[in-house]
Simulated scan of single mutants.
Amino acid sequence: MTAQQKQQSLILDRTQIEQKVKRIAYEIYERNFEEQELVLAGIHSNGYTLAERLAAQLQQISPIKVQLLRVNLNKATPLQEPVKLEPESINLLNKAVVLMDDVLNTGKTLAYSLETLLLQNPKKIEVATLIDRHHPRYPIAAAYTGYSLATTINEHVEVVLQPDEVAAYLL
């Protein structure tokens, strides 16, 4: 066992993460049942992986057409490179958008993503996150949260979304 493994605490296991994603899907459907189409914009990489799982759940429980959009940005230095949306062919004009990330900490990553989305004039943008750490520095709040966790600013939350391991850890 490595020193890092000794110091990490399991927050959510695979089953719990799947339950959280399913619950978020129901909440999104409940608040957007009148929409014909919904765009799930996931922050690359874990936010996009969660958006894919969320899309699968929404397609099982609702008639809403779901489109996936990958939001690529440099999280460490977001001003050095432009935020890119893939595929570029998705038009957000007058559409409901749910911006998804794995962990909401300060809100910086989501805040920098908003400008690019807002330039396409969506009908509304809501934020969904698997884990909300509650250290806001930017005016970003999640409309949908899987798990709310009080942490110190020095602690770190790591979400693993691999085929052989799905879990969230507090480091």
Rank of each mutant, 00 (worst) to 15 (best):
A3L: 04
Q4D: 09
Q7R: 15
L10H: 10
I11D: 00
I11E: 00
I11M: 03
L12G: 04
R14W: 05
T15Y: 09
R23Y: 03
Y26Q: 01
Y26L: 01
I28W: 06
E30T: 09
R31T: 15
N32I: 14
F33W: 15
E34Q: 11
E35H: 14
E37C: 10
L38G: 12
L38R: 10
V39W: 04
L40K: 09
A41M: 07
A41W: 08
I43K: 03
H44Q: 14
S45F: 14
S45C: 05
N46P: 02
Y48F: 15
L50K: 06
A55S: 14
Q59F: 10
Q59N: 12
Q67H: 09
V71P: 10
V71E: 11
N74K: 07
K75A: 11
L79H: 05
Q80H: 09
E81L: 07
P82Q: 09
E88F: 06
S89R: 06
L93E: 13
N94D: 09
V97G: 02
L99A: 02
L99Q: 03
M100V: 10
G107E: 03
K108G: 13
T109K: 00
Y112M: 10
S113W: 01
S113V: 00
L118G: 08
L118T: 09
L119Q: 10
L119N: 15
I125W: 03
A128R: 07
D132R: 15
A143N: 12
A150I: 12
A150C: 13
N154G: 07
V159H: 11
V159T: 14
V160M: 10
L161A: 03
Q162F: 05
E165K: 05
L170D: 00
L171G: 03
